[in-house]
């Protein structure tokens, strides 16, 4: 059972960072909702507040790791140009997608959108975490701050859903492959 280095990094980018981040969204909305709407007293304990802060900071770190690994590790493999005369384009996902009108849209619309929209998420979530940490339970006193935080959280969710969804489909149509082979398990 083997996996290539590029497969491994892609899995880490999508499943490790991206999916973990996506899964954390419901918790983040819950944290903000409880803090801002439900009431302060039950969550005023120091340990709970610290846990909420840790949760949001973890999301921010995951969002930055996702976009940085995507932009500087995987994207260069995706967009690498094949040498002249190459007929097997399986190691060149962008060229593979563009080689057929049936798949070119995955690059023209899918990747072109994904590569940019993903970057809204760390910007938005960094702001959300900062405001949450700065104001804590006091955010309940600032209705406009709370509205902005929820608006940007929703936008970050949308951006992540687009980037993650398109990424999954791109990986189905033209996976990033190649690099050193890593043996995970030796079968009989």
């Amino acid at each position: 059972m083997e996996i290539s280095l590029r497969d491994l990094v892609t899995v880490l980018h999508g499943m490790g960072f991206g999916t973990l981040f996506m899964m954390a969204f419901s918790g983040a909305i819950g944290v903000i909702y409880v803090t801002a709407f439900v009431g302060v007293q039950p969550i005023a304990q120091r340990a709970t507040t610290l846990m909420f802060r840790f949760y949001l900071v973890s999301m921010v770190v995951l969002s930055w790791l996702t976009v940085l690994s995507g932009t500087y590790l995987i994207y260069p493999w995706y967009r690498a140009k094949p040498p002249a005369g190459t007929t097997d384009l399986s190691l060149y996902p962008r060229s593979l997608l563009l080689s057929s009108p049936r798949t070119s849209g995955w690059h023209d619309l899918g990747m072109e959108w994904k590569e940019h929209i993903a970057w809204f998420t760390p910007i938005a979530m960094t702001m959300v975490a900062y405001v949450f940490i700065k104001y804590g339970p006091q955010i309940a006193l600032h209705r406009q701050l709370r509205n902005a935080v929820l608006g940007f959280t929703a936008a970050a969710f949308f951006a992540t859903a687009v980037a993650g969804g398109v990424g999954a489909f791109l990986n189905k149509n033209a996976p990033v492959r190649g690099g050193a082979q890593i043996i995970l398990y030796r079968g009989e």
Binding site: V40, I123, M127, Y130, K134, Q138, L141, Q144
Partner: peptide, 22 residues
């Protein structure tokens, strides 16, 4: 601490700066 107490309310300027900058 009573976080609903208006006398403990932090000014919103820092939050506003983060929101507009984002």
């Amino acid at each position: 601490p009573n976080f609903h107490n208006e006398t403990l309310r932090r000014p919103n300027g820092s939050g506003a700066a983060a929101i507009l900058a984002a």
